[in-house]
Amino acid sequence: MKFALFTGCVAKGATRELMMSTIKVAEGLGIEFVEMKSAACCGAGVTQEKSALLTDTVNARSFAIAEEQGLDLITICSTCQGNLKKSEHKIDCDEEYKDKVNHVLRDGGHQYEGGRIQIQHFANVLLTDEAKKRLKEKVVRPLTGLKTAAFYGCYILRPSELSPFADPDDPHELEEIFEICGATPIDYESRTKCCGFPIIMMNKKASLDMAGNALVDAVDSGADVVVTGCPLCHLNLDSYQPEAEALRKRNANIPVLHLPQLVGLALGYTPRELGMDSHIVNTHTLEKILGPNPAAKSSHH
């Protein structure tokens, strides 16, 4: 189980706890990640507006790097996942365009062949037979009784033909991981919606209303925690939660975890090892629900 890790920008910046917890979980499960340190930003769905060819070429460069390593490219961000797949699809569907892209890449010593590697999210890795087996064996702290609301991040779901998940209108992948960890998935309408973050700089009120609606929906559906596979969703749902609450005039106060943080808890890592102390919304309530950590793994590290 060796993969090329496309970290994305936010896991190296405002949500470094995502990177921390990804590494911990990979270590815990014996997954080898080769960090793509020379891969550039996916463009976040906004650089195509300036130039589609530029965005697709920069992304094809990342695919070529993964191809050179002979490793599947794994994202830890729904936004990176969606944007990389859009570029891949566009290039793979048009030989002439691919030639154009490769013509630009050539001088840098890269060539994108296509069809050689998969572009998938960390959630897909966790759901491979081998990782699932290991995860089941290594859960030392089942998250029993933790009512967990998945928040998928819209870019990984739509357009559905580019999604790495089986049924993007009604996905089950995150919930399946929750169940392996012993948590109880909560169903709620907002789980496949947009968090609002893409327009936080353009229409703050609408953006935070979207975040607020999702948080309130999760709380009203009985969730103790929201778990997302997208650090941008995390920013709107966690970092901006106080503003979203003020706007909705509703106290949500619900912790928001990155997917690897939830898995890390089940593997026995402490909240601190998973970077949960850096969250804006306090995550102590989870410890109360879960009770003492039988693994107390931190003492061995």
Partner: peptide
């Protein structure tokens, strides 16, 4: 245009 979140719900 800039109020679009690109969530692609409309595409779907």
């Amino acid at each position: 245009i800039w109020d679009c979140t690109h969530c692609a719900e409309c595409v779907e």
